[in-house]
Amino acid sequence: MSKNVRLTLACGEYESVRALLDGTVEVDGVDLTILTDMDSATRHWRFLRNNEFDIAEVSASSYLAARDRDWPVRAIPVFLHRRFRHGFMFINTGKGISKPADLRGKRIGVKTLMTTAVLWMRGILQEHYGVPLDSIEWFAELDDDVQLTADVKVSRLPDNKSVETMLAEGELDAVFHADIIKPFLAGDPRVGRLFPDHKAEEMAYFQKTGIFPIMHVTGIRKEIADAYPWLAVNLFRALNAAKATAMKRMANPRIVPLAWYRAAWEEQQAVLGPDPWEYGLTEKNRRNLETLVGYSHGQGLIRRRLTPDDLFLNVDQGRKRGGEYRI
């Protein structure tokens, strides 16, 4: 009978965790039950509000707010999901919106203001395009994972309203969303992107800032982290090993049914570097997280400017330790 600790991990079914899912990589000292059959918004709520999982991939924005309010949750600097966000700003094509400045005074829909994707988009809109967020009327579809502070202004939509439908029908001028919205996927001519060439905009953003936006962190219930102080390091090592296995596998161009997959892989390396998905509190990740904290604080979602070291459990094994074993 196993003497390992039995824990649950809820996360997306990503290539970067496949080695954990199939047992190729294990967390030393842990028997993991891994749960992947839920969407991100549901997983975040069930982890933060219902405390259903010991470990979970969780919204970075919601995690910041939870820590700001001293909720019993901690995290390690493993970022299973990142995404550039310029391509997720959608507009109604009949409203005369052709550039970011045209969003001043408009009605914009979101799933929630605390969605990490929305936090990034709002921050980018204000910092890099000069659009004041308080000039916009915001409408949210869902309740936030962590309750907003009283001075954050947003209108809640009733259950029978969808921001995607409202955009297509002209009730909203724009929608900022974590996913590609259904009207756009369906080719509805009433809906388009704010940045038609979003890839070029995102590449320019990266060249200017060095930021490949972090969306999610890996959360751990505080009581679990306290009970097993070795867990943070062992989990960090296992997730790094799983990612390394994934990257080695994905180097094979036959693995993905895309004609120019290898060209896309090489382009990513040329623009973003050899490991844009790096874990840990590296210099790049610190800048990324500090920007996210700044946006969250500036938008009134958190009251304190938490530092990366405040936010994450220590996974340092000591200088020149944790690598190759020598006898």
Rank of each mutant, 00 (worst) to 15 (best):
P72D: 09
P72G: 04
V73W: 01
V73M: 01
R74E: 03
R74L: 06
A75S: 14
A75W: 00
A75R: 01
A75D: 04
I76C: 05
I76W: 00
I76N: 04
I76A: 09
P77N: 11
V78P: 01
V78T: 14
L80F: 11
H81V: 14
R83S: 15
F84C: 12
F84G: 14
R85C: 12
R85E: 06
R85K: 03
R85A: 08
H86G: 11
H86T: 13
G87A: 10
G87R: 02
F88T: 11
F88A: 07
F90A: 07
F90L: 08
N92P: 01
N92G: 00
N92E: 00
N92L: 07
T93V: 09
G94H: 07
K95S: 00
K95G: 02
K95L: 07
I97F: 08
I97M: 06
S98M: 07
S98P: 00
S98C: 08
S98Q: 13
K99N: 06
K99A: 15
P100C: 08
P100E: 12
A101L: 09
D102Y: 10
L103E: 01
R104W: 05
R104F: 05
G105C: 11
G105T: 11
G105E: 09
G105P: 10
I108D: 00
I108F: 04
G109Q: 05
T112V: 11
L113R: 15
L113G: 00
T115C: 05
T116I: 04
A117T: 07
A117L: 03
A117S: 15
A117V: 00
L119H: 01
L119G: 00
L119I: 04
W120Q: 12
M121G: 08
M121V: 02
M121P: 10
R122E: 10
R122K: 14
R122D: 09
L125C: 07
Q126T: 12
Q126I: 02
Q126R: 12
Q126W: 08
H128P: 10
H128R: 15
Y129W: 15
G130L: 10
G130A: 12
G130D: 13
P132L: 15
